[in-house]
């Protein structure tokens, strides 16, 4: 299996789409922050981690990485499907389980862990530069950021399933974006017409729910108004985030593997 992982990693390193996605995810947050602060040094000095959380920028950064996760996940699972690379791995004597699992591992490393690291960089950079800020609780925010691993994992698994079933990264990306858009529309309709919040139900914007504080209060500190954001975490949120994500991840990957294992390859 390690050989499959090495081979898939090699392919991902050489893929222009993956590199562009990673660079875009890396550059996007700093670009947005630069815009907001009007490229002003004084403006940049006021960007603390709490500012990123409170202004919903952190949520935006993680939300933007959806596209990167879709592209990378589909590439990891599907890019070798259309040109027979997977066939040659099977013909080399690798069990189908190893061929599949190797791709899942690569997809998770590149599409979840690496993306999480990239998304955390603005937090690290601005924490070192300007400090954390008083408006949020560091421990809570860090836990929320770490919890994002689970919905990202679910997103990655969903798109790996689509790419595997369709046998192509391109088709997987197109279908994945289509599903994402459709669900976004459904969620808007549910919210606008039926007053139902379905974020956690569909899960794709579970990440936004984790990173965008729902409550805040204004306090006067040293004569100045300060907004304190409620970033507290309850066990219900943690269990739901982890439990639902893991359950669906296993479901998606199982469905994909069952088809992959049994299907004649062309």
């Amino acid at each position: 299996m390690l050989n499959i992982v090495k081979s898939v990693n090699y392919g991902l390193r050489k893929d222009t789409g993956v590199i562009i996605s990673l660079v875009a995810m890396l550059g996007f947050p700093f670009f947005i922050i630069a815009l907001i602060s009007n490229m002003d040094a004084e403006g940049l000095k006021s960007v603390t981690v709490s500012f990123l959380v409170g202004s919903q920028l952190l949520g935006m950064v993680y939300g933007f990485s959806y596209l990167g996760i879709i592209i990378i996940s589909c590439k990891a699972m599907g890019m070798d499907g259309s040109d027979k690379t997977i066939n040659y791995e099977i013909m080399s004597g690798h069990r189908r389980f190893k061929v599949f699992a190797g791709r899942v591992i690569s997809g998770i490393v590149w599409g979840v862990i690496l993306v999480l690291i990239i998304d955390s960089l603005p937090v690290l950079v601005f924490c070192l530069a300007n400090g954390w800020g008083k408006e949020t609780e560091p421990f809570d925010v860090i836990i929320r950021m770490l919890l994002c691993f689970f919905p990202m994992l679910r997103l990655c698994a969903f798109h790996m399933m689509i790419a595997s079933l369709l046998g192509s990264a391109g088709k997987g990306i197109a279908a994945g974006l289509g599903v994402f858009t459709a669900l976004d529309i459904i969620e808007s309709i549910m919210a606008d017409n039926f007053n139902m919040q379905t974020d956690n139900m569909f899960g794709f914007i579970n990440i936004l729910s984790l990173l965008i504080p729902q409550n805040s209060r204004e306090f006067i500190v040293d004569g100045k108004p300060v907004t304190i954001f409620d970033t507290s975490i309850d066990s219900h949120m943690v269990l739901l985030t982890i439990g639902v994500s893991l359950l669906l991840t296993v479901l998606y990957l199982t469905v994909a593997f069952i088809v992959f294992k049994k299907k004649d390859r062309h």
Binding site: G11, D83, T85, N87, Y88, I90, M91, S92, G93, R95
Partner: peptide, 18 residues
């Protein structure tokens, strides 16, 4: 699968990443 590790195949269009 072990037997296949001792073999090699070229079936239909040869493998190539474009």
């Amino acid at each position: 699968n072990h037997a296949r590790s001792r073999m090699s195949f070229m079936i239909e269009t040869p493998y190539a990443k474009e």
